[in-house]
Design a protein around this nucleic acid. Structure first.
Lengths: 242, 242
DNA sequence: GCAAAAGTGTTACCCGTACACCCATGG
DNA sequence: CCATGGGTGTACGGGTAACACTTTTGC
């Protein structure tokens, strides 16, 4: 089984495996992705996702965390998960590089220092992107939006403590449509994702009732409401893992 | 960005990328996976998933279809999708090989010719497996069982035409628990996945009402019932893509 | 008291499960 | 006419969306 695949003809000058991450954050109500502007050809001037070559002594998840550490404070990245492989033969010119893509999430209150060429770009108005990175961002969006429905993945976009209004804005930004605070609180509470801290947040200058502060009960990914139709006989309601 | 990652030290004798497929089929009521028994070290005698090295001129999906063609008649493989990357540094000994894993599905009435060292092994009683292939089979099971709930993926396990009873057996085998024919028909019909062919299947020697024959309305993967909680305002019921 | 913001109660509707009941055929 | 397998009708329960209503604050 072992054996290096030889390059085909002389067209490819390099072969390897890279990791790439679509790191998402809700900033001022919009979902944004971390990207850097390429200063050299190919695709000079276009925006690329952070990443780099996989080393022999690390798996792809270790690698993506190592690469992200060069762009942001890793402690700000609350969740990382694999999206899939991008492997079209000429996805990058003059080389044969297979990429493993990742989704990364950063809480809305984190403001990590980033290099000068790096910025948070809104996902609904992306500037021109390098290579196939736009497709990776699309996959990341699909994954995040789906998992907001049936997992507790919101913990990775929210601060440690927050009001339901603040959480509503985060969900609305991530999902791209309005979200009802009433129903958001009800759904997440019923699933055991939220717990009150006991503290309250003082109202703004216009008055209003002080908002209770909440936190996520768990800060690791958990499927809270798997969509299980055709479930085993005798199981009532949805299958919720305890 | 281009540049080959050099092997670390002298321990690794080979580097590359392979594709592996967990091809599943329901045979005589049990879910089984296609595997071949290794005749040489390492892991001699253990059972491995079909696959092989990725070439420079193909993407991973083309590659897995090419590799499978060496084991089975490709026209029998009704669906292929990517599971993810397995990349632990020493997942195979004395080499550095990253694997992209796939799920493949074969209809229950297909009986492709397979090589002598290859067999359909029951997933609930797998013989000893090579390398990390057991983890790939686990991922394939999870993916299939989840998608049976919210997509039309059953088309890839079912014959072109079938009775509801036959389909019930396929779903029960795949899910690993009993399935009600009544509710299976109702759920799939409501989602527009099933349509009657008009023909009927004659009853067996013990008598009984002749069963109507059905087919899947579409034979490509489609999400029929995405689990969308917190859906956009104004949308009634589940979000079903038309 | 009034406006503003937060939180609760209530209702309507969709969907899947369970189960009773009717249908068509062979012996 | 009875056993066997196929198919339909109906009741129940769980869960979310929508919206009216109450609570608590600043001015």
């Amino acid at each position: 089984m072992p054996g290096t695949t030889p390059p085909l003809g002389g067209r490819h000058v390099a072969t390897g495996h890279e990791v790439l991450a679509a790191v998402l954050q809700v900033r001022d109500g919009r979902l944004r992705v971390l990207a850097w502007q390429r200063g050299i050809a190919p695709d000079e001037g276009r925006w690329a996702l952070p990443g780099g070559h996989l080393r022999d002594d690390e798996d792809v998840e270790e690698s993506v965390r190592r690469q992200l550490a060069e762009k942001v404070d890793l402690s700000d990245v609350a969740h990382v998960e694999q999206l899939g492989v991008f492997s079209a033969p000429h996805r990058v010119p003059d080389a044969r590089i297979v990429a493993t893509a990742f989704l990364g999430l950063v809480p809305s209150d984190a403001d990590p220092a980033v290099p000068d060429d790096t910025a948070w770009q809104p996902v609904d108005a992306l500037p021109p992107t390098a290579f196939d990175h736009a497709a990776i961002v699309d996959d990341a969006l699909d994954r995040l939006r789906a998992k907001l429905s049936y997992t507790n993945i919101g913990f990775a976009l929210a601060p440690a403590e927050f009001t339901v209004s603040a959480l509503r804005e985060i969900y609305a930004g991530a999902l791209g449509h309005p979200v009802s605070a009433t129903n958001l609180q009800r759904v997440l509470t019923r699933r055991g994702q939220l717990e009150p801290t006991g503290a309250v947040s003082p109202p703004g200058p216009a008055g209003g009732r002080p908002a209770a502060l909440f936190r996520f009960t768990r800060r690791t990914l958990r499927v809270t409401d798997a969509f299980a139709v055709l479930r085993p006989p005798g199981e009532v309601g949805r299958a919720v893992v305890p």
